[in-house]
Nucleic acid binder design. Structure first.
Lengths: 378, 378
DNA sequence: TAGCGTCATGGTAGCGCTACCATCTCTCGC
DNA sequence: GCGAGAGATGGTAGCGCTACCATGACGCTA
């Protein structure tokens, strides 16, 4: 531990009032690119090379350096080369904060999701991330915890930063959130779901249709007393439930007692528990449509524990189609959702909009796909 | 769609050269707080209230407003009230970019993880997020994709922003990354693992010990030909393998043919596949220690498919102890890791350091816990 | 050859905030 | 009663960059 101590002095707060120290640390930033040409700079700033240093070295005006970096085609070949050489030599990196202040636009994508651990959102964020990784844009993450109020708070925090774009999960923003999004002055993409009246753009699919398709499949497979098990019950879950209900009603099979829900966050163990409860309530259940795969897995495990035959005695359908569903025993039918693709597409649309090429289609429905597997193959 | 169209004109690039439009959109930012007092401001900036506006309204100097907001105790009760009233009335929100430029410090935590979808890191990020949610700090996320080079690139991007702190996963940074971290001029916390020679601070546990403990447990439970199955094999996995190997060697049970690894990213289906391969190679296998729970679940499913009795014929131990392990059938033994707590603790340490209260203990080992379950109860 | 648009380049003036230093007012000790 | 010290407040001068406008050089048309 002592070794670590010795090797990094200076930055920490306890010497916060001691400018000497801070500067010493900052100067080391060069290290990489340049051999610490310590010009006695003014008090602040810490001495990293600035655009003015590059301009001086290249023998041009600062603004030309700025242009060479941002709009190379507007600077003559000659100067460009000279400037880039100077940039290299000094190890110059533009200060994103100064840039943001001067241009009133930060190179940041604000991303708001209701959960970081829910695999569905994690995959969407990954899609966003991957699509942005070779752009100059950074990602700022916000976790709304499924709360409208928290979403408002986060938008209030994100707004003043003047992000280049905002990507938000869901289409059920509060009126205040909607207003904040409209006022953000940047492209906005609502993801995960499609619906009428986008704030700006939308990428997702119909959860209602997903739920209905799943239920219809089970009905078709011969199940009759098909339960619905859902946790958390965010707006998307509600719509899946509505789709299930529509299908069940159309077949004359709906019964409110078939539905088991809870606001508690979803998990495999909760799925098992809820299924137990559902079975106690309705012993003649012959199938379950689970609001997501975690629940479905919980149901499957409970069936194993209780020696209930799947798909014979009970059929199971999940939602999202996580990787494990296809290798489970028996493999589990699920509705495959394009969550990674949603992330990618949302970025593509936002980037197009930033570039001034507004996509014609403002609402993109990426659909879903029912994966029929053993768990409903009666 | 048309409705959405009509309701948000102006920001998009196709009218980028048309300042009129942009300003119109920006002005709307007030809307919420104030009834659009459109003072004919200078060309840039879009007209949101600034600290100068607040100062004027409150009849004080701008710097006093700044202080009232950042160090309230340094401003008299009276002025503070007046200022806060003015802030409220104008709907003033400080511009984080201007703040960052002026103070040479952004209120941003840079977070670097190797994967966004791996539940382990997702939970750590969640811990970080939760600990930061009522602080002024924002989170900027970086995904290294398990690549040292990508980590370097990201540090190069994060550095110029002058983040308030950096939290990076792992302790195996490249020399360049280490240099960049040391030069960042802010607290740095390496998370997930502990080891000698921290860049600054560390929070994690010993993966070697975790692997050894798991293997020892299986040996103790009576298993003899215990395989190791691992995917991805990042440095942490390597150390778990080393721990397993140490335990096996100590018991005189090690055999290189027991080890099955692949650089391919981990998943449940891959776990099933690898186990199949391992079994084909070593039919007399009587147990497996899985590098993580996904693999373990895949093994469990394969056992079901192939009608292999668990724990009788084969014992299974996982790593991380995801929620599902305790409800699986049979429930699966696993090494519980404090990933959420790691996130929380890392933030606590970084915040302390920022406040100048450097924690005495620079390396914090949060340990792990072996959860014995049915899958190894022979 | 004059006149005009186009292109490459540069100067100036901020963007909105905070560090630094100066000033002013009180309180206290002797 | 006076100087020292502490606390509250303010003015000034940037932070590093880019928007805007100006300038000069060039090529084109008439």
């Amino acid at each position: 531990m002592a070794s670590g101590c010795g090797s990094r002095p200076g930055w920490h707060g306890d010497s916060g009032k001691d400018a000497e120290h801070r500067f010493a640390a900052s100067r080391r930033l060069f290290g990489v690119g340049e051999k610490a040409v310590i010009k006695p700079r003014s008090r602040r700033g810490g001495g990293r090379p600035t655009i003015a240093d590059v301009a001086r070295k290249a023998g041009v005006g600062a603004i030309t350096v700025s242009r060479a970096l941002r709009e190379p085609e507007r600077v003559s070949e000659d100067l460009r080369r000279q400037i880039l050489a100077a940039v290299d030599e000094l190890g110059y990196v533009p200060d994103p904060n100064a840039r943001a202040l001067a241009s009133a636009r930060a190179e940041v994508f604000g991303v708001l999701v209701p959960s970081l651990t829910n695999n569905v959102f994690a995959e969407t964020v990954r899609g966003i991330y991957d699509s942005l990784s070779d752009s100059p844009f950074r990602i700022q993450l916000g976790n709304t915890h499924y709360s409208g109020l928290e979403e408002e708070r986060l938008l209030q925090v994100f707004g003043p930063q003047r992000p280049a774009a905002l990507i938000v999960a869901g289409i059920d923003q509060t009126p205040t959130s909607r207003r904040l999004l409209e006022a953000a002055g940047c492209p906005v993409v609502q993801v995960m779901e499609t619906g009428p009246d986008p704030v700006d753009m939308m990428v997702g699919f119909s959860h209602f249709d997903g739920g209905r398709t799943a239920a219809e499949h089970m009905i078709e497979a011969g199940y009759r007393r098909i339960g619905f098990i859902g946790a958390r019950m965010d707006p998307r879950s509600q719509r899946r439930l509505a789709g299930y209900r529509a299908a069940m009603e159309a077949a004359g099979l709906f019964d409110a007692r078939l539905v088991t829900t809870t606001p508690v966050p979803s998990s495999v163990s909760l799925g098992r528990e809820l299924f137990r409860g559902a079975l106690a309530k309705m012993p003649m259940l012959d199938g379950v449509f689970c609001n997501n795969d975690d629940i479905a897995l919980g149901v499957l495990f409970e069936c194993h524990h209780a020696s209930i035959a799947v798909p014979k005695t009970i059929g199971i359908t999940g939602f999202n189609d996580l990787d494990m569903m296809q290798v489970a025993f028996p493999s589990v039918t699920s509705v495959r959702t394009p969550r990674y693709e949603i992330g990618r597409r949302s970025v593509a649309m936002a980037l197009a909009a930033i570039a001034g090429e507004r996509p014609e289609q403002r609402v993109v429905d990426l659909g879903f796909e029912l994966k029929r597997r053993e768990s409903t193959a009666r």
